Amino acid sequence: IRCIGVSNRDFVEGMSGGTWVDVVLEHGGCVTVMAQDKPTVDIELVTTTVSNMAEVRSYCYEASISDMASDSRCPTQGEAYLDKQSDTQYVCKRTLVDRGWGNGCGLFGKGSLVTCAKFTCSKKMTGKSIQPENLEYRIMLSVHGSQHSGMIVNDTGYETDENRAKVEVTPNSPRAEATLGGFGSLGLDCEPRTGLDFSDLYYLTMNNKHWLVHKEWFHDIPLPWHAGADTGTPHWNNKEALVEFKDAHAKRQTVVVLGSQEGAVHTALAGALEAEMDGAKGKLFSGHLKCRLKMDKLRLKGVSYSLCTAAFTFTKVPAETLHGTVTVEVQYAGTDGPCKIPVQMAVDMQTLTPVGRLITANPVITESTENSKMMLELDPPFGDSYIVIGVGDKKITHHWHRSGSTIGKAFEATVRGAKRMAVLGDTAWDFGSVGGVFNSLGKGIHQIFGAAFKSLFGGMSWFSQILIGTLLVWLGLNTKNGSISLTCLALGGVMIFLSTAVSA
């Protein structure tokens, strides 16, 4: 259960009878995928790494000078000259100064003066180019299975845990398959586009800190620079940016070097996208990844198990997540596992009318040892309800109150669905055939309105939902006002479609 501690969480529900669903994975976010007769899966884009970055340009932001020398000439005696002028490691300046009897010249006039100092770069920052084909995306998957609280967001041991898996995709191999043991396998067909235009970005490294910066900004930095990788004795261009020549006297000129420019660069980098280094690879934390999940090989585990009949206890007080759902960790005293956990939410304890829904599909106890633990997640209705676990006299209950409203949740879900469709863009549509167009249209309606429909009408039977949709269509056909007619027709059509397409 990876997503319960992530604030940016998206719930995606598969269409009834569908074998695939489109998701948008982004750094700092987590996606929970639910479908009829399929286990619930949490998917998170953990890291995006980039390798084989080529150094484009380096800037010196802290330097020192040494070996200063000057040469001067009297008027009419030609130009002052130093051998160091031809050495690229030196920074030199030529000027004219007033000369006369007082400073060793027989004539009054302008004399030539040249001053040089050896330039040494102490600290530099480097910009590297990123090729999209060198990106690698690491995705962690977790099935809502027989897990306890100690396994949440624990990325170790996934090789031997059938509840978890790690997959890596690249532009050259965008397809992967996550093996989930008894739950089958989940196929991923990803489109490795981060949403960032790397043709316009460089990877900047300064003092063990890293950013993504725009090329134009990078090339306009007014500091000494050299092109390409460091060859040991780089040729620094624009050395004068960190060196200041003071007022010249008759035979000498003082040279000083400016202080470190790291603070000024940090100020200019305010708002830039931060990154990290992992050995020789860069780690990015921006952008998104679009994936199509193929769920035809994914299956529920323990459908044929019998119900657990022994007593359950709450190991922890049920807690609310950031998303309005409830996490419950229970301990089973029996030894008759594997068995299914009898769990439901009810409005009252007399009729036990089921409300809400299970995020953890078909929760089971897989071990036959005593005191096995299991964590599950529920989506309670707004208002008061009861969490009921167990059967008969051994069942345990917990009162729950959820604040908020169904309308607010439906609106929030619609906005999130619209954002998801905007990110998917043209990849969500198939114009290759008439059937493809209608299929894409259905998927689009489901992406945007599916979660809201589930919130508003999830407790009704599909037949009642179709009746309401048919009534809206009838009202649309018999209303003389054009805008009201079109609105009723659209709402009725969407409702009829979703009542037959969205899983219960």
Rank of each mutant, 00 (worst) to 15 (best):
I1M: 15
R2K: 11
C3L: 01
C3I: 05
C3H: 05
N8C: 06
E13T: 03
E13Q: 07
M15F: 15
G17V: 08
T19K: 06
V23A: 09
L25P: 00
H27R: 09
G29Y: 12
V31T: 15
M34Y: 10
Q36D: 06
P39M: 11
P39T: 02
V41N: 02
I43R: 03
E44C: 06
E44I: 03
N52I: 06
M53R: 02
V56T: 03
R57F: 07
S58H: 14
S58T: 14
Y59A: 04
E62V: 09
A63Q: 09
I65D: 03
I65N: 02
D67A: 14
C74V: 07
C74H: 06
C74P: 01
P75A: 03
G78I: 04
Y81D: 11
L82W: 07
D87C: 06
T88M: 10
T88Q: 11
T88F: 05
Y90I: 10
V91G: 01
C92M: 12
C92R: 11
L96W: 12
L96S: 08
V97H: 05
D98W: 12
W101C: 00
G102C: 06
N103M: 09
G104A: 10
C105K: 05
L107Q: 04
F108I: 08
S112F: 07
S112M: 06
V114F: 08
C116Y: 13
C116K: 06
K118G: 01
K118T: 02
K118A: 13
F119P: 06
C121V: 04
C121D: 04
K123T: 03
S129T: 09
Q131M: 10
P132I: 04
P132W: 03
N134E: 07
L135K: 02
M140N: 14
M140K: 02
V143H: 08
H144C: 10
G145K: 08
G145F: 07
S149A: 03
I152Y: 15
V153N: 14
E162R: 04
E162F: 04
N163K: 04
R164V: 12
A165W: 13
A165Y: 10
V167M: 09
E168Y: 15
V169H: 07
V169P: 02
N172Y: 15
S173R: 03
A176T: 06
E177V: 06
T179H: 10
T179V: 04
G181S: 14
G181R: 05
G182M: 09
G182V: 01
F183A: 06
L188H: 11
C190G: 10
C190S: 11
P192S: 15
T194P: 00
G195M: 09
L196D: 00
L196G: 00
L196N: 02
D197P: 01
D197E: 09
F198C: 06
S199T: 15
D200G: 14
L201E: 00
T205P: 00
M206P: 05
N207Y: 07
N208T: 15
H210T: 01
V213W: 08
V213T: 05
H214A: 08
K215N: 12
I221H: 05
L223H: 09
L223K: 09
L223V: 13
W225G: 01
H226T: 11
A227H: 03
A227R: 11
A227N: 03
G228N: 13
G228F: 15
A229I: 13
D230E: 14
T233N: 15
P234I: 04
N237W: 15
E240R: 00
A241P: 01
L242P: 01
E244Y: 01
A248P: 14
A250R: 02
A250W: 10
K251T: 03
K251R: 03
R252I: 07
T254K: 03
V256T: 00
V256H: 07
V257Q: 04
L258F: 08
L258W: 08
G259K: 07
G259S: 03
Q261F: 12
V265M: 12
A268V: 08
G271Y: 11
A272W: 12
M277T: 14
M277E: 04
G279E: 14
A280T: 14
G282E: 10
G282Q: 03
K283Q: 00
L284P: 09
F285S: 14
S286A: 12
G287K: 00
H288F: 06
L289A: 02
K290E: 09
K290D: 03
R292N: 02
L293T: 02
V303H: 01
L307M: 15
C308G: 06
A311E: 06
K316H: 15
V317T: 04
P318C: 04
A319L: 00
L322N: 06
H323L: 05
G324D: 11
T325W: 11
V328Q: 04
V330W: 09
V330G: 03
Y332H: 12
A333E: 14
A333T: 14
A333C: 10
T335S: 13
G337L: 10
C339S: 04
K340F: 05
I341S: 04
P342W: 13
V343Y: 01
Q344N: 12
Q344M: 13
Q344K: 15
A346R: 11
D348L: 00
M349N: 00
Q350I: 15
T351K: 04
L352V: 11
V355P: 00
G356C: 04
L358W: 10
L358T: 10
I359G: 03
T360C: 05
I365H: 08
I365P: 04
T369R: 00
T369S: 12
N371H: 15
S372Q: 03
M374E: 01
M375H: 04
L376N: 05
L376Q: 03
E377K: 11
E377S: 01
E377D: 08
L378W: 09
F382A: 04
G383D: 07
I387R: 01
I389C: 14
D393F: 08
K395T: 09
I396W: 03
T397A: 15
H398I: 00
H399M: 12
H399N: 15
W400G: 10
S403C: 00
T406W: 08
I407V: 11
E412L: 09
T414V: 05
G417R: 02
K419Y: 06
K419G: 00
V423A: 13
V423G: 00
D426I: 02
T427A: 14
A428F: 14
D430W: 11
D430F: 07
F431K: 04
F431T: 10
S433I: 02
V434N: 09
G435D: 00
G436H: 02
V437N: 03
F438G: 00
N439S: 14
L441R: 02
G442H: 06
H446E: 04
H446V: 12
Q447H: 12
I448S: 08
I448R: 04
F449N: 10
G450I: 07
A451P: 13
F453Q: 13
K454R: 15
L456P: 10
G459D: 05
G459T: 02
M460F: 12
S461H: 15
S461C: 09
W462N: 06
W462S: 08
F463Q: 04
Q465G: 02
I466A: 12
I466V: 15
I466Q: 09
L472H: 01
V473S: 00
W474G: 05
W474I: 02
W474P: 05
N478I: 10
T479W: 06
T479P: 00
K480F: 02
G482D: 13
I484A: 10
S485G: 13
T487A: 15
T487N: 05
L491M: 13
G492L: 00
G493A: 15
G493M: 15
V494R: 00
M495L: 14
V502N: 12
V502Q: 12
S503T: 13
A504M: 12
